[in-house]
Design a protein around this nucleic acid. Structure first.
Lengths: 223, 223
DNA sequence: CGGTAGATTTCGTGA
DNA sequence: TCACGAAGTCTACCG
């Protein structure tokens, strides 16, 4: 990884056009070809950047980063007027990031304990396919089938998505009366409202509690 | 801006849980309180980060970044085992980024040349309000009104959005027969298919050409 | 401060 | 390679 602190002007032309007037900024040139231009504020996002795969050339204080060809071509030009620092660092191989609590984990926990969605609820199958993509869970209880969409945050977009799935699911005569439930760790009020007006159920769950239900013996130790 | 290259272990707990095993990484501590952890690969995105406003403390090789309180609390812990480089850089004030070609610009260009959507098409108003948000353009031709949704990339989500708008627009008796058109610089095939099946029109435009139509005198010079 | 929509979204996955 | 969906999305804007 090469780190440059320099007074520079940056131009990007590709999906949009952008110009950064001259100022002192941090340039990051990664081993994989990524180039990031960061300022001392603005948080998470680089002011300008290009992701792999790139072609990087440097001549006479001008760094040119290119990507793609023809209509989809992109070009990032960094004109350095004063270099305040320029260093190289060998970082070796990095291991991956371990995450927990994302939608996938929630879906798993729910698949293992579908009865939190109602008495007698059981899992029919996960990732039940439709022409517009798979619905997270297909469940069933005494009253019939229920299509379940799982989200970390329940929004109106999730309601729309579930509606789209149901439209196709109900084309199957056996599933014509299939109900729908949106499950999320946090539910937006607007999502609940829209869901209700479309005849869908909503449920708020906690992943830690879900797992607690799956492994009740662990709770005994904690109690 | 403080730049640290160090062998470190990183833990994040907040919206999810994440652990980064020990490796050499770049730590960026910005003036505004942002903290980013970058590896030498992985492109645009930091491995871990925290956006303002944060509380940053450092004691004995342990950097702790905290944010929020109570249920929404987040914590980022960086345990440094070996510091390879640690430098501070004064970057002063940075000027803003000038962008062109985003959705807003496309909407403007289209508002100035609505006839590309069809002969005799004229602009009624921009940002025509509905209870579910404003539709980008409301136009009209000899056959009646047309609601226009503008996107840089036309997706099925954009089609759904336009449908949602039309649902409300058509409640007004004067607009009961309002048509709909999705306009984009690039149109996904699925979006076009869904739009057609819902009785909506689609149009692909180029922002440079749009502007060319608005200022035909400029073309004469080029020709 | 919450909600919505845009983004050079980026990033992963599956066909 | 393409298309779709998630993301600790982030960020700006509006109420």
């Amino acid at each position: 990884m090469r780190l440059i602190v320099a007074r520079c002007e940056v131009r990007y032309q590709g999906r949009v056009s952008a110009v950064l007037p001259t100022a002192v900024r941090l340039l990051i040139l990664k081993q994989d070809g990524s180039v990031l231009v960061h300022s001392d504020a603005g948080g998470f996002k680089p002011l300008n950047w290009m992701t792999p795969r790139t072609r990087v050339t440097e001549t006479d204080g001008l760094i040119t980063v290119e990507k793609g060809t023809g209509a989809r071509a992109e070009r990032l030009e960094i004109r350095m007027e004063e270099v305040l620092s320029d260093s190289d660092h060998d970082m070796g191989e990095a291991l991956g990031l371990e995450k927990d609590g994302v939608e996938r984990d929630l879906q798993e926990a729910l698949a293992a304990a579908p009865d939190v969605l109602g008495p007698g609820m059981r899992l029919v199958r996960r990732e039940y396919p439709t022409p517009v993509g798979p619905v997270d869970l297909l469940c069933a209880d005494a009253e019939g089938y229920v299509a379940v969409e799982v989200k970390r945050v329940g929004t109106i977009l999730a309601v729309e998505q579930l509606c789209r799935y149901l439209e196709y699911i109900r084309e199957d005569p056996a599933l014509a009366s299939c109900r729908g439930t949106l499950v999320a760790e946090t539910m937006k009020v607007q999502a609940r409202t829209l869901a209700t007006s479309r005849g869908l159920a909503t449920a708020v769950v906690d992943i830690a509690e879900l797992r607690g239900m799956r492994e009740p013996e662990l709770r005994l130790f904690g109690a």
